[in-house]
Amino acid sequence: MNHNDFNKLYPRRTGLLTPRNMEKAGYAGLTVLTILTVLPIIAVVIYILVQGAPAISPSFIFDMPRDGMRAGGIWPAIVGTIYLTVGTAIFSVPLGIGAAIYLAEYAPDNRVTQMIRIAIINLSGIPSVVYGLFGLGLFVLFLKFGSSILAASLTLSIMTLPVIISTTEEALRAVPHAFRVVSISLGATRWETIRRIVLPQALPGIVTGVILGLERAAGETAPILFTGAAFFLPRLPQSPLDPTMALPYHLFVISTQVPGMPVQIQYGTVLVLLVFVLGMNLIATWIRSRARARRQW
């Protein structure tokens, strides 16, 4: 078919609705939609920055609160949130990644594993206050850990696990099956294959899942409310069995429970929490992009 015949058979559309114009309109539309979704987030961040920045100073970060928390700093809340996040990571990261490796690489595909998977998905939909009550019953009362960093970290771990397990499992499954077959055909064991090929390939996805889970843990109030969060403590926690102050709960306290609270301190606290969480995000992005640069396929 020569070009003229082609044009006769499929005449060019003219006017406003040419495919080219529709493509342009669609592109513009999608761009606008994207901006619309990002705009509120940017607005919130800017608002908090403007309101909170004046409060930020070395003494705000590193001092203990004074005058019934109306003055001084928020150091114990910052330290507490770090303790809780690290504690949560200690329990949930090895357990979550281990469970995901089992589910993705070893578990037979039968009814039991399907049920486990469904249970995990449903667990991530449970409201966080339910985890709080569960932690109170199990860790604080039954296991007698008392209201403590240990009990709160364990509670947060249970809440975080489903996120870590399902994102890690997904990341492992995204690694092409053929790599496993090749590795095994070269005399590697399953575990060597996982360690040398599958895990490095899945690392970016796993890191994303872990950080997402830990971020949620760092920002939650309800699960630690009954299990380890303190309204006010005159000194930093000395052991994992001490209760602790924490940024999200402290924020709740100074926003609702303390009359005559300077607005500045509230927004300053919000800003610190935000920086904490965004900082974790940044680390995740950094690890992801490094892993992607080293990825070789």
């Binding site: 053929a178 790599f179 077959v181 090749v182 055909s185 490095p200 990825r295 070789q296 396929w297």
Partner: peptide
Amino acid sequence: GMVFARPLPLPL
């Protein structure tokens, strides 16, 4: 040992 139909280099 085995060589497969599709070239399958490992991601290394």
